[in-house]
Amino acid sequence: MILAAQSPGFLSPSGVEIAFLLVGLVTLGAAVVTVTTRQLVHAALWLVVTLGGLAVAYLLLTAEFIAWVQVLIYVGSVVVLLLFGLMLTKAPIGRSPDADSGNRPVALVVALAAAAALVWVVVDAFRTTWIDLDGPAQGSTKASGEILFRYWVLPFEALSVLLLAALVGAIVLSRKNTGEKEGPR
């Protein structure tokens, strides 16, 4: 309560908060369009807007390295992979009427209930909590490299083995037949 009294309130947002709010609105709107549009390729392109908005949100939270990793990996490779997947499965280019399955109302109810519960709990829990963004950036490349290679080396190496296994698995799965070298990926 004392902290809440000393901290700025909702009625006097700082510049970072206004920027975060605008970026968050864009991100959320693009996410909603991603899951509701009937044009499959447009869904992938709106996903780019969502992931880019999240990268800007990371920048506003002073996590610079993660923001650029997000741009490189998600916008650069994951979306391209998804577009290749859409092309290889001969997804219709125009408006496809059966993009949503039959359990759409149930999904809507579940999502709205989950959203109401989560937002209520989160707002109730962190109503009087403030992030101190002053001082040096906490997610700069220097800081990230130091913690990653000083404290998290073993998980990092294990993750490289996992990535290698996933690469081999994807190649094995997408080969057409045994003995045939050519694969779509």
Binding site: S101, V110, A111, V122, I131
Partner: peptide
Amino acid sequence: MHLAYPAVLAALLFCVGLYGVLARRN
């Protein structure tokens, strides 16, 4: 920055993703 902004945005994004997983056919 108020912590509720990123937390609420994350919760809403998660629920949008939940809706997409449940409702999409492709």
